[in-house]
């Protein structure tokens, strides 16, 4: 029982980081209906920004963290401007966006390999490794902080979308971006904000990921799993992305704990395939019928 709870807590904390990444995929999907595979590269750079802010600039943790998030926010917007905006203006089919995203992802990963090198780097020990004892449970401080900050960020995001005027405009754009454009809404600005938000959360996720594991150029591959979480929850739905991530994180940890850590990576894809077969719109996505 204790072991189960322990696994559950680990799963929740990793799931919450997945959620930070997954909402980035889902936000973009909800507005632009394509899977932004460059997001993984942005997350990876977030991890590097944080790492260098701590080691090279010798900043304290909080400023380093903020710097990393600012960096990824700008980077995400830059990717949009360079790789997607020209396609938007041309009304290109969704596939061109995906390929362009793949190109951006290859570009980001290899710029890092070429300039910084492919080596694994370990974050300095900002947060003590000693766990906190909660009764019989030992909870990692980092896990706790990760979970807490992710929850705050996600709540903030959902409040922003639900309560502010800008958030309402984003919702409207997600419902029908063409109609919004016709009604004179500045959709370019909405897209900018959406990428900025996704980029910011990518920074948070990247730093946590780097702290929990290590930093290396192929982190982006792991972010594929958060994309799967977004599909699991229903692409385009924010609560879905959060739910899918938490479930995926938990299932993964339980599988690794009870079956075999070898299956850990495979289970994500098994879930993905299962979802696509039985409910392609995911747990909370809306089903659409195309009109004849």
């Amino acid at each position: 029982m204790i072991q189960f709870l322990q696994q559950l807590i680990n799963g929740l904390s990793i799931g919450s980081v997945y959620a930070l990444m997954a909402v980035g995929y889902s936000l973009v999907y909800s507005i632009m209906s394509f899977s932004n595979f460059a997001h993984g590269g942005v997350i990876m750079l977030g991890a590097y920004f944080g790492f260098f802010a701590l080691t090279l600039l010798k900043l304290p943790f909080i400023p380093a963290f903020i710097l990393a998030c600012a960096g990824t926010t700008l980077l995400a917007i830059l990717v949009e401007r360079i790789a997607y905006k020209p396609l938007r203006e041309r009304n290109a089919p969704f596939l061109y966006f995906i390929i362009s995203a793949m190109g951006a992802s290859i570009l980001l990963e290899n710029i890092v390999i070429a300039t910084i090198g492919p080596t694994f780097r370990t974050y300095p020990p900002v947060i003590p490794r000693t766990p906190i004892q909660l009764g019989a449970l030992a909870v990692g401080r980092l896990d706790l902080i990760m979970f807490f900050i992710s929850a705050v960020c996600l709540t903030g995001l959902i409040l922003f979308i639900e309560k502010t005027k800008m958030g309402k405009a984003i919702q409207a754009a997600a419902y029908n971006i063409k109609a919004c454009a016709l009604m004179g809404v500045n959709t370019d600005k909405i897209i900018l904000i959406v990428f900025g938000l996704g980029g910011f959360l990518a920074g948070v996720a990247g730093v946590f990921f780097g702290m929990k594991y290590t930093v290396y150029p192929q982190i982006g591959n792991i972010t594929t799993k958060s994309f799967i979480a977004a599909v699991f929850g229903g692409l385009g739905s924010l609560p879905g992305a959060v739910l899918g991530s938490v479930l995926l994180g938990t299932i993964e940890t339980l599988v690794a704990g009870y079956l075999s850590s070898q299956f850990r990576d495979l289970i994500a894809f098994v879930i993905l395939i299962g979802v696509l077969i039985f409910r392609p719109s995911g747990i909370m996505g809306k089903t659409t019928v195309d009109k004849a």
């Binding site: 790789a83 061109y96 190109g103 290859i106």
Partner: peptide, 17 residues
Amino acid sequence: IWRLVFYGAAVILIMIS
């Protein structure tokens, strides 16, 4: 080490141009 960087950039360039 730079060739995949060019490759990625080329892909984006082809898509947008």
